[in-house]
């Protein structure tokens, strides 16, 4: 780790001013990803601005019945919050499916959105990686890529976004609020992550020096669920996950939200599947057809075609569970 200076910010304006849009400076939240990457040599900031004491740790119900979640709310507080559990169960479940109790106590909402891929080539600085070192190449395409992307990737990078929380936030149409020295701004989560293309090192549309201040969720169907598959039963990153919310009336899908995790460089909103489902009978055949509509765009590599089957099966299973849950109530 290289030496760095450290300052604590106590208000949002001050934090943004301290960072001063300096490319050699980083905001320090829970540190669960940043400190890890600094030890690995992937990140070498010259300055850290600690934002853990900013007054951004609240969760409030908005006027339209949605939620506004402060950027420094910890994963644990988010998952345990009664309004999150009541209105956005999939978000609570997604957070609880991620990391460990210790990490969830440290990690923050803003940091979660900004966490970097866990691709083994990215985290090993002796390896080429276009995301870490633009132009150096992507060894994963021909190498180890069992957990690489099947959607929206490019020959320049096939890494997946590791977040569980983000998958639920994508399904719930989250909007990210931020602050820069110029003032406040907003980005829909759908626009938050940039396409991979030939610039995998450019990950988000946040302006330079921006501090994420909050994530806002509009109202959503009350029945929602998150399912995650991984290579051990807990404390592992996803190899495939689904966040879904479903509203069915008279056997017909009225509203549906569907997002996939561990399939792309960002939490993947399954718009094609949603379009196929709206107005369709809430039945296994529709769920399968919807998954197929989404996954038709999948471009698997030599060793990760299983993800297409996995996501198809997960989609059907989760939507079926939601539908049965609705029938039972």
């Amino acid at each position: 780790m290289k030496e760095f200076s450290y300052r604590r910010a106590t208000d949002v304006e001050g934090a943004v001013a301290l960072l001063d849009a300096d490319p050699g400076a980083r905001f320090l939240g829970g540190g669960t990803n940043l400190v890890d990457l600094m030890k690995a040599g992937v990140e070498s900031p010259e300055r850290l601005v600690d934002i853990r004491e900013l007054p951004l740790d609240g969760i409030e119900v908005t006027g339209d019945g949605g939620l506004r979640i402060g950027a420094t709310v910890t994963n644990s507080d988010l998952a345990a919050h009664p309004e999150v559990r009541r209105r956005y169960a999939a978000l609570s479940q997604a957070v609880l499916a991620g990391a460990s109790g210790q990490l969830r106590n440290m990690a923050t909402v803003g940091g979660n959105l900004l966490q970097r891929t866990r691709c083994g080539y990215f985290t090993d600085i002796s390896s080429p990686c276009n995301k870490r070192e633009p132009g150096s190449g992507c060894p994963a395409v021909e190498g180890e890529h069992r957990n690489a992307a099947i959607l929206g990737a490019s020959g320049h990078c096939v890494a997946v976004h590791p977040s569980d929380m983000g998958v639920a936030l994508a399904a719930f149409d989250a909007v990210v609020s931020y602050r820069t020295q110029e003032g406040e701004g907003e980005l829909a989560l759908a626009d938050f992550y940039l396409p991979v293309g030939d610039t995998p090192h450019r990950e988000t549309a946040l302006p330079p020096g921006a501090l994420i201040t909050a994530v806002t969720l509009p109202p959503a169907p009350v029945r929602s669920r998150y399912r995650k598959v991984r290579e051990r039963a807990s404390y592992a990153f996803a190899i495939g996950s689904v966040a879904a919310a479903l509203d069915v009336r008279d056997g017909v899908v009225q509203d549906v939200r569907l997002a996939y995790g561990a399939v792309a460089s960002r939490p993947w909103r399954a718009r094609a599947a949603e379009a196929a489902l709206l107005g369709a009978p809430a039945a296994a055949a529709s769920f399968a057809a919807a998954a197929d509509a989404e996954l038709a765009a999948a471009v698997p590599l030599a060793d990760n075609a299983y993800k297409v089957t996995l996501l198809r099966n997960l989609t059907i299973a989760v939507l079926t569970e939601l539908q049965q849950e609705g029938t039972a109530r």
Partner: peptide, 8 residues
């Protein structure tokens, strides 16, 4: 990784 001989 066969190309580098390193573990991933």
């Amino acid at each position: 990784d066969r190309a580098s001989g390193a573990l991933v």
